[in-house]
Design a protein around this nucleic acid. Sequence first.
DNA 1: GATGAATGAGGGTTCATTCAT
DNA 2: TATGAATGAACCCTCATTCAT
Lengths: 204, 204, 204, 204
Amino acid sequence: MKLTRLSDIRRRELRRAAFEVLQEQGMAGATLEKVAAHAGASKGIVLHYFRNKQELFEHAMREANAGLGAAVAARLARTPDPRARISAVIECNFEPRFFQPSICHAWLSLCAEVPRDATLARIQRVIHARMRSNLVSALRALVPPEAVEGLALGISALIDGYWLRLGLRAGSVTGDDAVRQINLYVDAMIDASRARPVATALAR
Amino acid sequence: MKLTRLSDIRRRELRRAAFEVLQEQGMAGATLEKVAAHAGASKGIVLHYFRNKQELFEHAMREANAGLGAAVAARLARTPDPRARISAVIECNFEPRFFQPSICHAWLSLCAEVPRDATLARIQRVIHARMRSNLVSALRALVPPEAVEGLALGISALIDGYWLRLGLRAGSVTGDDAVRQINLYVDAMIDASRARPVATALAR
Amino acid sequence: MKLTRLSDIRRRELRRAAFEVLQEQGMAGATLEKVAAHAGASKGIVLHYFRNKQELFEHAMREANAGLGAAVAARLARTPDPRARISAVIECNFEPRFFQPSICHAWLSLCAEVPRDATLARIQRVIHARMRSNLVSALRALVPPEAVEGLALGISALIDGYWLRLGLRAGSVTGDDAVRQINLYVDAMIDASRARPVATALAR
Amino acid sequence: MKLTRLSDIRRRELRRAAFEVLQEQGMAGATLEKVAAHAGASKGIVLHYFRNKQELFEHAMREANAGLGAAVAARLARTPDPRARISAVIECNFEPRFFQPSICHAWLSLCAEVPRDATLARIQRVIHARMRSNLVSALRALVPPEAVEGLALGISALIDGYWLRLGLRAGSVTGDDAVRQINLYVDAMIDASRARPVATALAR
DNA sequence: GATGAATGAGGGTTCATTCAT
DNA sequence: TATGAATGAACCCTCATTCAT
């Protein structure tokens, strides 16, 4: 962690600037010049630190996700109870510092590039895998094995769905509403799996 | 409906070509030249029918959504039972002809433009409003009033979430899985609202 | 003059529309589409009547000048006195219906094309020749022979200079000021040529 | 004057290239590509130094006029006699290096843009103001106060008129003719104002 | 005669990227 | 390390012009 050489600082500044420009300008509007200006640097320096525009935004995506990932990890580290761990994951995703229209815009812009950027796709895959892993390990203690994967996917899809919603229209969802509704979903599914374990199993 | 003049045909061809190019090239890569070539026309004619690139893709979005909208409407027209209507809406969204990776790509690309394109935002709003309206009217007969809106939003967020998933990674979800999981969600929520009506009410 | 067939009417409408669009849009901005729209016609029809854009604006220049030419001719027809004929020419050029900023704009735009449009150059030459002829014939009776040409050129240059001025800045000159100043010039030159005939001759 | 950095040199080269291309191609024909080629540079670099085409030609106009302005200033600096100062202004405007058909063409093209380019209009206004100022200050010592402004405007209009003439037709005027005729005008007006001071006053 | 569909050339402008300093 | 000059490719868009109807 002592690796904060000058160059590392510069790189981080640029990653952040890239993500911030992305928030308000979209991928097409996020030119290297604007990113440089936003970081208070010259245009040339951006490509001194990143091989090309694509690489810059790949790093920006990692950077942007690192915060959320760290928050989840921190919460989980002090949350042993399975059900509470599910809530922890959900709540982190809707903390005010993450769940903001502009951030959702930027995230959407990056998602839209995924099909044509293998690295971006890989990053996205890692992010999803981590979330799945967190959810699955907790769900195993809460629902029958055959319901675990489906529910884990459902929860993360629902999280993404709310993020998309906020990205499409500021004010259309509040983080609290999202958290509450997703928790209701989780509880209902847990209850259902207990009340009708056979039905659930048959449904698959 | 007799308005299928030559010009209307051309416009539809171009809208579709635009959407198809969008599927594989993304918004930035979907140049007017490629769209024109894909429609077997010259570049000039595209802007003869659409004022600019933006307008073209706005119409492409409407076109792309019209099919899904019509499918939903047709199913609902012959489905009186409330619970079945919910299923109808869900199932339409995951019909094989709609729920395809490339279509999800294009949809994602358009979503990413929404924050910077007021018309696109309006179209998106209308689409969401229609879905909400369909869901809400059916849910009123199934869950307590105070749970209706939240559940309707949850269902559509979940639908969007699965679309996003497929857009991000082909093969990561099947339409059948999505339908099944969303229906489990609906059933669980209906059950929960019956089993613990007070709790649900207090939760709000 | 009975030649006003339908086609002649259309042609005149288009010439005038062309000149009017030229007034506010300049040569680059005066597209065939705008001219057509201004004349309440379709774009195609313009090139049905005029071989190409260039020809249209050549005719527009003729049309625009015809009014001034006719006004001068009419005044001269009833003005026998030489000095009065000079005044007549001057005054016509500054009649309120001709001496207007927008008309001067259009005239300037056409002048700017003269170096690259032989026909326009010829039209301009004819216009200047007619003015010279009118002035010279009157001046012969007022100043020594060797001063005639120079003064005629001076008068028309002065007229053009005031037109240019109005074209460059609306409100910078009034027609009355121009007429008065040019007449002072003419009078002063006539007086001078009488007072110092030799000096004038030597000056050449 | 030590500011001749590399960038300043480039900018000047481009301004000059722009003006030279303008001379033979007119505003519409003076494309950025031609300007770049004429300066031996790439098209991209032009817009690296000037925000857009309009700005380039605004600077070209300033550049083109700077020479004439400097020549006038230099002459005036060593010419105390009022009448001689008038002549100095006139003569500078018709020096062979300035009074050339191609230069008049370019000047005309720029004038034609003035109505639709506020900056160009401002530049033109400054140029005219400077000329007026030079003439007025000298004329105050030569003619009655009430004749000063009108005569100053007349002189500059006459200068512009001859420029226009040369722009419209190469060979139609010589600089010497123009200088002689304008000086005759000035002398005649001075004489007239002495001979008939009252008449002049009344004429206003 | 009249319309507007269709073309294709070309222009201005933007930008990622390279390179010399 | 850092700058910004320079390039060249592309893109959107405009328009004169042609043509089928």
